[in-house]
């Protein structure tokens, strides 16, 4: 079975893993807003936020190098825009773009790698996101693994007959047809167990005192850092 690494990390155990998803999502939003709206002394502020995120990831016992490398996946996109901005005569803005996008990706990964996606989606739902959208995300996530395994079986079948995976269009069509068939079977399986168009959650997560304490600390840390750095000017 092939599973995404993030999913494995998110099922580890640490004080951060045990926090309620809402206690991580709200600070994430605060972090992103504070970072996106900061201008003065951005390199210093970015370095402080980077250190804060690294300490958080070490505390969460997820591989720091692995998360740092995965956050860099956004760089090819932002570097292009940064280069255009640089050429247009605003190198500071280009550098800020790279810093902000990398730190944002790192912060998102810190939350995603410490919260299993179903739990995270439940947290998002409890914060008021549309239920239908989350249901689609949940199904997409659940069957991503099944479709991915199906694709790997097809690749192996093609390779075992001496072929490469060149006939990608044909293989994609078959993969789509199989996924469509499976979607029909899933719907039948849901109806067979009495589904009437609404998912009923088994249990709502409990928000403990430790979650409140973490929420206050994690939300105020980037704000306090920014205030302190801007006062230095």
């Amino acid at each position: 079975m092939h599973h995404v690494v993030l999913d494995q990390w998110s099922r580890r155990s640490s004080p951060l893993h045990r926090r309620d998803p809402r206690a991580k999502l709200i600070p994430l939003i605060v972090f992103l807003v504070v970072l996106a709206t900061s201008h003065r002394l951005l390199p210093v502020f970015s370095a402080c936020l980077f250190a804060l995120l690294c300490v958080t990831l070490l505390w969460a016992r997820v591989p720091l190098g692995g998360v740092l490398a995965r956050a860099a996946i956004v760089l090819p996109f932002t570097i292009v825009f940064a280069a255009v901005t640089w050429v247009a005569g605003d190198p500071a803005r280009g550098a800020a773009l790279v810093l902000k996008s990398y730190l944002s990706a790192l912060a998102v990964l810190a939350v995603v790698s410490t919260t299993p996606l179903p739990v995270l989606l439940r947290g998002v739902e409890m914060l008021g996101a549309p239920r239908f959208l989350l249901m689609v995300s949940q199904f997409l996530y659940r069957y991503l693994f099944v479709v991915s395994e199906e694709a790997q079986h097809m690749r192996k079948a093609a390779a075992s007959r001496g072929g490469s995976f060149r006939a990608a269009a044909g293989a994609l069509a078959v993969l789509f047809a199989r996924s469509y068939k499976q979607a029909g079977e899933i719907h039948s399986a849901m109806l067979a167990r009495g589904f009437q168009g609404r998912f009923h959650p088994l249990a709502a997560p409990h928000f403990h005192a430790a979650d409140t304490a973490f929420l206050i600390f994690a939300s105020s840390a980037p704000v306090l850092l920014r205030v302190a750095i801007e006062r230095m000017v």
Binding site: P116, L121, Q138, R142, Y143, Q182, E185, I186, S188, A189
Partner: peptide, 11 residues
């Protein structure tokens, strides 16, 4: 159902 993956759709 024959294919358990079709039946186990919850997280």
């Amino acid at each position: 159902f024959q294919d358990s993956d079709s039946q186990l759709f919850m997280p």
